[in-house]
């Protein structure tokens, strides 16, 4: 079984004013199978660009990316990116034509989408649309799950609930997962391993493993973890 190996040596964009804009410096990390990693960094540090490179949507960079196994991807973009002219269920089935009816039903039930299967995305709230995007990513039974700020612009309560649902799905069926976020608490709540990125051009400034299993973290442990992160970032 291959693991996720990311080694981007350099990535730049052509700036509108001419010249090149460096987005990613030398950035390398790897993630074991079934591990959940979180890339944490300030807005605009190149997190989304990195995710696009890993997803194979951007091939114009120096370096290499090795995907786990056959590299079957499940991606949750920042916006839900559902097809507005297809129902929620059709959206999921089009991405995962091989998924069985039972698997989909279980997935819809776990995400509270059972009653909304036949609705069009325009009839869904943002929270439901994000759940639909999660359902689509899980339905393909991915070997690598990529999540780009999946809870951004949701209210705190809803974001927390969705985070718990996601944690439960990942625990039930372990899948190598890479989460991109600027929210440290969100990262601690979900990930086994945190990678802190510098401002652009991005590189990894600290790697923090989170040892305990996700569901057993207490408030004290989280506080201790946050203190450790602050210390490590202070050194970097």
């Amino acid at each position: 079984m291959r693991r996720l190996e990311v080694d981007v040596r350099h990535k730049s964009f052509a700036a509108a004013s001419g010249g090149r804009l460096d987005v990613i410096g030398s950035l390398a990390f790897s993630l074991g199978n079934g591990e959940v990693g979180a890339l944490v960094g300030p807005s605009g540090c190149g997190k989304t660009t990195l995710l696009r490179i890993i997803a194979g949507l951007d091939r114009d960079y120096d370096g290499s990316v090795t995907l786990p196994d056959h590299g079957r991807l499940g991606v949750v973009f920042q916006e839900p990116r559902l097809l507005p002219w297809r129902t929620l269920e059709q959206n999921v089935r089009l991405a995962a034509p091989d998924a069985s009816d039972e698997a989909l039903t279980a997935l819809f039930r776990a995400l509270g989408l059972d009653a909304h299967r036949q609705l069009f995305p325009g009839e869904l709230s943002l929270g439901l649309a994000r759940r639909a995007a999660l359902a689509r990513a899980f339905a393909v039974e991915p070997e690598l799950l990529l999540l780009d700020e999946p809870f951004v612009s949701l209210d705190d309560t809803l974001a927390m609930r969705l985070r718990d649902e996601l944690a439960e799905l990942v625990t039930r069926r372990p899948v190598t997962t890479l989460l991109v976020t600027h929210n440290v608490d969100e990262a601690i709540g979900l990930a086994d391993r945190l990678f802190f990125l510098s401002a652009s051009p991005a590189r990894v400034i600290a790697e923090v493993p989170v040892a305990r299993p996700r569901e057993k973290r207490t408030a004290e442990e989280l506080a201790a973890l946050r203190a450790e992160i602050a210390r490590k970032l202070g050194q970097a």
């Binding site: 949507l57 991807l73 991606v75 973009f77 990116r81 089009l94 991405a95």
Partner: peptide, 24 residues
């Protein structure tokens, strides 16, 4: 382009893309 990227990462075939992503 966002929907195009979506179709690509989920590996939709050319026919599915045409019928469900492009033509609508």
């Amino acid at each position: 382009r966002g929907l195009d990227d979506m179709a690509q990462v989920f590996r939709m075939n050319a026919l599915t893309r045409m019928r469900h992503v492009v033509l609508p």
